[in-house]
Design a protein around this nucleic acid. Structure first.
Lengths: 215, 215
DNA sequence: ACCTGAACACCGTTCAAGT
DNA sequence: ACCTGAACACCGTTCAAGT
């Protein structure tokens, strides 16, 4: 449902409800249930729709470049609809988001790279985890309600870091604050972690590569 | 709150509510609000409590082994309380789960490995993504309500895979079904993906290693 | 085929009042 | 200090009834 997606884009997952959707459509809440099984099914459709343009193209030839491109395209798709990110990363229903065509592509790319049998399956699982893991974390929603209290508390606890107790953290604080997981008060919508993402996917493909030369 | 955690362990996140917790404690729902700010704060405490025994020890000397041990210990902690996994992976509040001591340890380990300045921060972000990403996906909850309908539908759509259209998928179906992301109907609680996890963390540390020899 | 309308069994959270 | 009790503004979902 496209109306549901734009509502979620605007108000977030917490602000979304069947009744809010009904309101937006100018209809009784119960009318929705003629078109869709239930809320879960609707959200699955929303995820699928949000990711529909992230399906990768067959090329390029080099599997390393293909994988990186695949990861970047997925991230770009989620960046367009960041509020659905929790559904993909943390709900098994999100399976609907990735179709068999994408799975087939990943398998064939990993196969040409040299992965076989059980190793192929494990490499596939690693690829999916890489694809979803970073971005889910990056786009994790902030506590919607008392936002200013949250950021104030976050900043204050960082200022209060004891250099004696946590020397590395204190030394790198200016580089880390609001640019590193856990040590931030805004998410990837407001502060994208582009460079960290690039390092992350580079590490992943180089690790896979190493696995092929010395298993 | 320990009572909240055991309730979540038993009934899952969807089955949990302030009112259910109040019932379990033999108290009025509103009484809880004297002890805790609100539901979000309570869940943050629950996460922190669930992960309290996953804080890593300082050793061993080799940063590769330390990282792997760190990843394994985190996974073991989540396996003990799989129902809180969505909170960690997909909510920024989960920050409460990892303390400054753990951050300090990761930074010092990556520093001795050879990462400096911005690279240190990016490597740190990659480590957190690796730590949380796979496990969050692995433990993602199944659609609680109509479970049998879901598995039947899942299995059926796999049986119906066209070998002409999806040759790789069809060929590796027996190896993949219920053992690979997206192509499964049970989560990590029922079917742990041990070998894939080991490959995943091996890929990560080897990728980091490669990054040090040729940046 | 598609929507209304009432109804049921829930939620999180407030605030005054009790002890 | 800690809990009760009533109240408010919400939820998802059902089912019969309308058109």
């Amino acid at each position: 449902m496209v109306a549901a997606l734009s509502l979620i884009d605007r108000d977030g997952l917490n602000g979304f409800s069947m009744r809010a959707l009904a309101d937006a459509l100018g209809v009784y809440p119960t009318a929705i249930y003629w078109h869709v099984e239930d809320k879960n099914a609707l959200l699955a459709e929303v995820v699928a729709h949000a990711l529909r343009d992230s399906v990768p193209r067959p090329g390029p030839a080099d599997w390393r470049l293909w994988l990186k491109e695949f990861f970047r395209r997925y991230r770009a798709a989620v960046q367009r609809h960041p509020n659905v990110a929790p559904l993909i990363g943390a709900q098994l229903v999100s399976n609907a988001g990735v179709g068999p065509a994408t799975i087939e592509l990943i398998l064939s790319v990993l196969s040409t790279a040299g992965f076989r049998d059980d190793h192929l399956v494990h490499a596939y699982n690693a690829v999916i985890a890489v694809q979803v893991g970073f971005v889910t974390l990056e786009m994790a929603p902030t506590p919607a309600d008392n936002l200013e209290a949250w950021t104030v508390h976050m900043k204050a606890s960082l200022r209060g870091v004891d250099p004696g107790q946590y020397p590395m953290l204190a030394e790198n604080l200016s580089r880390m604050e609001n640019r590193a997981f856990i040590v931030r008060w805004q998410n990837g919508t407001e502060v994208p972690l582009d460079d960290s993402f690039e390092l992350f996917i580079d590490i992943a493909v180089r690790g896979l590569e190493q696995r092929l030369v010395t298993p």
